[in-house]
Design a binder for these strands. Structure first.
Lengths: 117, 117
DNA sequence: CAATTTGTTCTATTAGAGCTAGAACAATAC
DNA sequence: GTATTGTTCTAGCTCTAATAGAACAAATTG
């Protein structure tokens, strides 16, 4: 699971990290039941603070994608993995369409959020 | 054009405002060539600072959705209106699918961003 | 033309989020 | 029992968002 972060981005590091893991789950790179690297290990390899990594993990937990337990780490949940996988194709289609129209990710996500409310 | 803002949200007010206008354009509530309320007027009615509203308008200008001119205000562009309208249906479909899966707006937008890169 | 409207630019201040840092603690794994 | 790992707490730093006030420039309006 390769994780690329952009410290210059307006998107917070913890959110970028969560998005990277989320994407990995959606693409099936990480299966349900698999353990993610521990926060301390991942923080070390990414050059981040442990708290920042844990913040990202906790966001994924709030979304129901992973479970966090002391001594064991972060484990991908069954529900999270299957749900995301099903959505992946539809998302790819919309993104392609938006790309064709020359829209930015910000514009598209703004539309999404508007539709949600 | 009804605009609802949530001061407690993590999303900045200027971004929420831009998203609201963007959604109005996408749904056809505001047609190309139409003028948006002036920044001073809108700031007054929303209880915001003029700069905050202008910040939102300027974001929309950077996205090519509106034109800003002194004395005239913010006008919806032809390109912006037509482009967003075409995307609207596809977005609605994906959001419905995501909703069915019980996913949050954050999860979905994270997938979108992941797909963009 | 003159007055009004409206966006632009500038400086300044305040409040909050994000990130880092260090430490102590609790539950789980081995 | 020991090591691992998430949890919680305090602290400080930086940057962005938001507010505020003022002066200015361009376009509209009458």
């Amino acid at each position: 699971m390769l994780i690329r972060l952009d410290p210059a981005s307006a998107e917070p590091l913890f959110a970028q990290l969560a998005a990277a893991v989320r994407g990995a789950i959606a693409r099936g790179d990480v299966a349900a039941g698999e353990r993610l690297p521990s926060a301390r290990v991942l923080a070390e390899s990414l050059g981040l603070n442990v708290h920042t990594v844990l913040h990202g993990y906790q966001q994924l937990r709030d979304e129901g994608l992973v479970e966090l337990r002391r001594g064991r780490g972060a484990v991908v949940t069954e529900a999270g993995a299957s749900g995301l996988a099903r959505l992946h194709e539809a998302v790819a289609g919309v993104v392609a369409e938006a790309h064709r129209l020359g829209l930015s990710a910000d514009e598209l996500t703004a539309l999404i959020r508007r539709e949600y409310s």
